[in-house]
Design a protein around this nucleic acid. Structure first.
Length: 523
RNA sequence: GGGGCAUUCGUCUAGCGGCCUAGGACACCGCCCUCUCAAGGCGGAGAUCGCGGGUUCGAAUCCCGCAUGCCCUACCA
């Protein structure tokens, strides 16, 4: 095993100032290390659900580091808990990552030189390491029973003592062990954690220390021989030559144990970077009751992956100047772990919406049309393949009104409803009665027939002239016309809309509006 | 109970001992633009930088204490 791993060094100081200085000057050093040791980062989700937004952010940070430094981004599925893991979730995770635009270099579905990439398929490798610890007496078989441990915990709690495993299983005599075996006790393997302080340097958090009694004799392998999380992670990260472990802050306490395992196995730990958590308004771990939890939900809700990426990266990171719109590519160039904050960040859906709007307006029309078409069909709009051009023209008008892609159908349905019957009761007949309005719309209908060319500027000129002839304010004529032609009060600019709708649709809708108005007038 | 970490407008953040009577963005309010709705432009309100000590000529920035919050404390990951 190589005994020097690439890493970003950081002074032991933990102030933002020191971190930043380290960050700003880390460039050349990083590159140097990148040339001598490959940068390899990983994302290690448990398949207990689809891609969670918190995991998505972790994946993003790993991806950005890998791409910026020319390293490898590895996906490892941590499915050692058979109870909770479900293979069907694996595909959901892949889909989420792909949708976000995060591609990986090694993983269960793509293979790679350090496979297998599913933890459940690595049991033998973990087992060897467990045996090594057993052989060097850094671990032991623990024949205590669950009842004994529960009793110990209960007593500790009652006495207000720290709840820690005392290591009572260390010193059974051969006779006691035989007795327990006979009684059917299946031993777990515990790490022999001798009292000593533990510390590690974290790229985000600085130096982290724990006192000598913090880590107890934790279990590294179950009675059935399978390795537990901390053991499996260490073995896999080592065997996969992971250079930087970038993960959520909720793993800090685990890191103490893992550092001890690296040491006991004679391995050099990777560099660590613990990201602040994404939390809800009450500042607790973000979950489903706080909004959509899975990345896939954001997709169906009409968010752009660009927007989610942009939003997520700003949870705990900022470039240091006042820019805040970043594409994935730009982030690859700009993102630095050293600039990541340590405080947890509240997930603010309104801010996500803002980014979504910004990114929708940034897309070029063809791209937007392609994406919106799918949502529009899913949203119930009946679109014929030959209507792509028409759809595009209509969408062009709705551009800055489209906040979420899944609202495409509701925003644009009036363009496609050939049986549209405008509800003229929406008009406020304050200045002009229904009868007067009907007379005016007759003239509009005539104008629609006669206007040539049937386009935005010409229509506007003719309509303004008509309003003036009538002695009406322009708006008083435009609103009934808008409702007649679109069926709604809020639309894109009227004459551009009419141009896109075309003469025929306008004519038909005006006639139906007039029919409706006639009923209104008699009623 | 123990340990670890954190704390700047409601929210995301800038801040690296004097450029800070704390900057930007979201949300909110107002005005402008305007045929409606948006988008856009301009402006407003909003943070005694969690609290208390200290160091310093000078502290949001450094140190100590306290409070609060979060995470971990499984034969889960």
């Amino acid at each position: 095993m190589p005994n020097s791993r690439p890493r970003w060094t950081r002074s032991s100081g933990t102030t933002r100032a020191e971190r930043s200085i380290a960050g700003n000057t880390a460039g050349p050093g990083e590159i140097l290390r990148a040339m001598t040791q490959p940068i390899r980062v990983r994302m290690a989700p448990s398949p207990t659900g689809d891609l969670h937004v918190g995991n998505a952010r972790t994946a993003l940070c790993n991806y950005l580091m890998a791409r910026r430094l020319g390293g490898a981004f590895i996906l490892r599925v941590e499915d050692t808990d058979a109870q909770r893991s479900d293979a069907s979730h694996e595909e959901g995770i892949y889909e989420g990552l792909r949708w976000l635009g995060l591609d990986w270099d090694e993983g269960p579905n793509v293979g790679g030189p350090f496979g297998p990439y599913r933890q459940s398929e690595r049991q033998d490798i973990h087992g060897e390491a467990v045996q090594q610890l057993l052989a060097t007496e850094r671990a032991y078989y623990d024949y205590t029973t669950a009842e004994e441990r529960a009793a110990e915990r209960e007593q500790q709690r009652a006495e207000g003592q720290p709840q820690r495993y005392s290591g009572m299983g260390r010193n059974f005599t051969a006779a006691e062990i035989a007795e327990r075996k006979a009684a059917g006790v299946v031993p777990a393997v515990r790490f022999r954690a001798d009292p000593k302080p533990v510390r590690f340097d974290d790229i985000v958090l600085g130096t982290i220390r724990a006192g000598p009694d913090e880590v107890d004799d934790f279990v590294i392998a179950r009675g059935d021989g399978s390795a537990l999380y901390n053991m499996a992670v260490v073995v896999d990260d080592e065997h996969m030559r992971i250079s930087h472990v970038v993960r959520g802050k909720d793993h800090v306490s685990n890191t103490f144990r893992q550092v001890l395992l690296y040491e006991a196995l004679g391995w050099t730990p990777p560099a660590f970077a613990h990201l602040p958590l994404v939390v809800n308004r009450r500042r607790q771990k973000f979950s489903s009751r706080d909004g959509a939890q899975w990345v896939g939900e954001y997709r169906t809700q009409g968010y752009l992956p660009e927007a989610l990426v942009n939003f997520l990266i700003f949870l705990g990171w900022a470039p240091g100047d006042e820019r805040e719109i970043f594409s994935l590519e730009e982030l690859v160039r700009e993102f630095r772990l050293e600039r990541v904050n340590r405080a947890d960040a509240v997930f603010d859906p309104q801010r996500l919406d803002h980014f979504n709007g910004v990114w929708i307006r940034r897309l070029d029309l063809d791209d937007l049309a392609k994406r919106a078409w799918t949502y529009a069909s899913a949203g119930g709009l009946e679109l014929r393949p030959d209507q792509r051009g028409y759809f595009r023209s209509a969408l062009e008008l709705e551009y800055e009104r489209l906040s979420h892609l899944n609202r495409t159908a509701e925003l644009m349905d009036f363009f496609f409803d050939d049986d549209l019957v405008p509800d003229m009761r929406q008009v406020r007949y304050r200045r002009h009665s229904a009868a007067e309005t009907a007379r005016a719309l007759e003239l509009v209908a005539g104008l629609v027939d006669a206007t040539e060319p049937f386009d935005d500027p010409t229509l506007e000129a003719r309509m303004r002239a008509l309003a003036s002839d009538l002695g009406w304010k322009a708006g008083d004529l435009f609103m009934p016309t808008r409702i007649a032609v679109t069926g709604r009060k809020a639309t894109p600019p009227l004459f551009a809309t009419m141009e896109v709708l075309g003469r025929q649709r306008c004519r038909e809708r005006l006639q139906r509006a007039l029919a409706g108005l006639a009923k209104l007038a008699t009623a």
